[in-house]
Amino acid sequence: MEIISSLFNVILMVFIVTTMLTAGFNTTLEQLGAVLSRLGLVAAVLVTGFLVRPLVGWGIAEVFGLAVPAYVAMVLVWSCPGAPFGAKLVMTAKADLQSGAVLQVLMAAIGSLTFAPTANLIIGAADLGSDVSLPVWDLIRTVALLQLLPFVIGMMVRHWTPERAEEFGGFTAKVSGQTFLVVLAGALLGSWSEVVGLIGSTVLIAAIVASVVMIGIGWLFSTGERRTRWATALIQPCSNSGPAFAAVAIAFGNDPAILGAITAILLFQIVVGLPTASFVGRRRAAAAG
């Protein structure tokens, strides 16, 4: 069992690193500068992602009275903005892909530093027990090393040698996609009974409600034209799973109950986000036609 857990953690690290390398390989300094120059949009997205989003996850966990493992999972997941899947939703919706992709990457990079203190602050305020806490500095060091550093390296490679970035980016994107499936499968296999037990539970309802709420808030708090507002709305409900899984590995010994709840919440974020993005994309295509 210890060997399997160690293997899971290695694959998890590969997933996180290749995901952020891919993001860096696909982000130019010009794109980053163009989006950052829109100060109102950036401020709205960051406030929504780093202040409102964790509070929504915490509030919904309280409203639904979730058990401690599911409560911890909600706090961890909703303290992790910037999932790569968010950019795919923006693409599906035919929204402002450049703004959505750059803002998603920006949130992931900043989130590597803010995730641990944010989640630990909420867990402490929720008073879930003296044994429920996060090793904040260990997590900041680990997640920053696995996320922020690869992203910066990838972006610098893109700036200096675009051809190499394109070549490497194709490879890391494949590895990222494949290892993500392995991580999800490993989490499911390691906690399948807990995941099955969540079917029909308030945990899944809480995940759906939080996802819908964040799409609405992402739209309302955004600025600019409709395609930009849809881009910022669709990146908000998607959680960057790497830090959450890393926290469970480092702080909770890959607890099956927390792993199962995280996996279920992530799946239902997709269940809400993908149909919404598809609906918006069809409407935009019909309007354009």
Score class of each variant (00 low, 15 high):
Thr142Pro: 11
Lys88Phe: 13
Ala119Phe: 10
Gly49Ser: 13
Val272Met: 04
Pro275Ser: 01
Ala23Asn: 11
Ile123Leu: 15
Val195Phe: 06
Ser5Val: 12
Ile140Ser: 09
Cys238Asn: 10
Val132Tyr: 05
Arg53Trp: 02
Val196Phe: 15
Ala93Gly: 12
Trp58Thr: 10
Phe168His: 03
Thr142Ile: 13
Asn240Ser: 09
Gly49Glu: 10
Val152Lys: 00
Glu225Gly: 01
Ser222Met: 13
Val52Ala: 14
Ala44Ile: 03
Leu113Asp: 03
Gly65Met: 08
Met214Pro: 07
Asp131Cys: 02
Phe151Asp: 01
Trp58Ser: 05
Ala264Ser: 04
Gly82Arg: 00
Thr223His: 11
Gly82Phe: 05
Ala233Ile: 06
Thr223Leu: 06
Ala73Gln: 07
Gly186Arg: 01
Ala119Trp: 09
Thr114Leu: 10
Val45Phe: 13
Leu21Phe: 14
Val175Asn: 13
Pro84Cys: 06
Ser6Arg: 10
Ala108Ile: 05
Ala287Cys: 10
Ala246Thr: 10
Thr161Ala: 13
Cys80Ala: 12
Arg229Glu: 08
Leu103Val: 02
Leu188Cys: 05
Leu146Tyr: 07
Val213Lys: 12
Pro243Cys: 02
Pro54Met: 08
Asp138Met: 08
Val272Glu: 01
Gln147Ser: 08
Asn240Gln: 13
Leu55Asp: 05
Trp192Gln: 08
Trp137Pro: 06
Ile60Pro: 12
Gly111Ile: 12
